[in-house]
Design a protein around this nucleic acid. Structure first.
Lengths: 190, 190
DNA sequence: GTCGTGTCAAACAGATCTGTTCGTTCGATA
DNA sequence: TATCGAACGAACAGATCTGTTTGACACGAC
């Protein structure tokens, strides 16, 4: 299934990703996407029945890309203690927010633009699952307070994302990492 | 200056605040605002020369309202130790995210919708100042690491805001408060 | 060689959005 | 009572946005 990976489709998605993320979804019309991707409008509507479809696919890929990127780094530290593996998530975040075109969390942004849009809400909900799941898995068989620890770690991650965006802070992921260290050190020594 | 506080202007701003915050700025047209405020379009354009002016004023008031609300709670605890005063910020946040129409940080949302819009950027920058300033003031004459502590506290606040919005978490401010307690307890005991 | 598929270019339809204009109404005040 | 300011309602202009339609072209497979 889903053999649809033609060259035009890919070009459309790359352009959509770049424009939607950089300028916002509402602010970028279909005409911009087709102009900058070099695909004709009629062809674009063959590959994506509506703009909504294009947006949904944009979000799906954003989520997958980030999840894979973070997960790969964590997996690469297989023989590290869990603390180091969890902290490496914040190292990836540091890389991400350092990229010149960083403009915050694509899902927070999409949720802000389309608060009552069903497919966007689904895409956001889907994205919001993987990071706490990763932390949970790394922290092993859940103790009583691990739910709280996971939630706290995710919050620190989100806060660093927000600060990097709204304050243009270049160091927010470093700050977040230190807070995460503190949270991990304070874990109940069961 | 700025004696402009007529009844129509107030009705326009109240309606704009409700609609822009609930549904997003792009998604709400001027026609919605005038219809729901019961003000004619021509009158609205007397009070606000453009939609942009209305948006800027909406953000200004949102920022002021929240700043006043938080500051008042903190000031009410004048004889408490600083830790308690700082933690009370997260109690206010808990109240805010518990309100039924909560839909995230209005400034994060606006920044997501208008990434390159000068007046929105100004409004966001203006809002982003008061919370770290409040934390700094409470923490007293800045030690070497207090900048880091302030940034960490703000991040935790932002993270709780994001989680409350994107995950519909009702407990995120409580989680954030616990993290803040940890951060404060770990302060260098100078 | 013909058919089918994928693509393009351009015009168009219909909706929506911001902002303007114009004539009218109503109430306060001098 | 006459005047003036504030607001109204409705139509309009012009831009923009999503999505459709039409006709043509290129190219590979049968």
């Amino acid at each position: 299934m889903e053999k649809k990976s033609s060259a035009v489709r890919e070009r459309l998605l790359e352009t959509a990703d770049r424009l939607f993320y950089a300028e916002g979804i509402h602010a970028v019309g279909i005409d911009r996407v087709i102009a900058e991707s070099g695909v004709s409008k009629s062809t674009m509507y063959v590959h994506f029945r509506t703009k909504e479809d294009l947006v949904a696919e944009y979000l799906r890929r954003r989520s997958d890309t980030m999840r894979v990127r973070v997960t790969r780094e964590v997996e690469a530290r297989e023989q590290m203690p869990v603390e180091g593996r969890i902290l490496s998530v914040f190292d990836v975040l540091h890389e991400v927010i350092s990229e010149p075109d960083f403009r915050g969390c694509a899902f927070a942004n999409a949720a802000a633009e389309y608060p009552h849009h069903e497919r966007v809400k689904e895409a956001v909900a889907r994205d919001r699952v993987w990071l706490p799941a990763l932390f949970s898995r790394l922290l092993g068989p859940p103790g009583a307070e691990d739910g709280l620890l996971v939630a706290a770690l995710v919050q620190v991650y989100d806060g660093a994302n927000a600060a990097a965006h709204l304050d243009r802070s270049k160091t927010s992921a470093r700050t977040a990492r230190k807070t995460a260290e503190l949270l991990l050190a304070a874990r109940q020594p069961a």
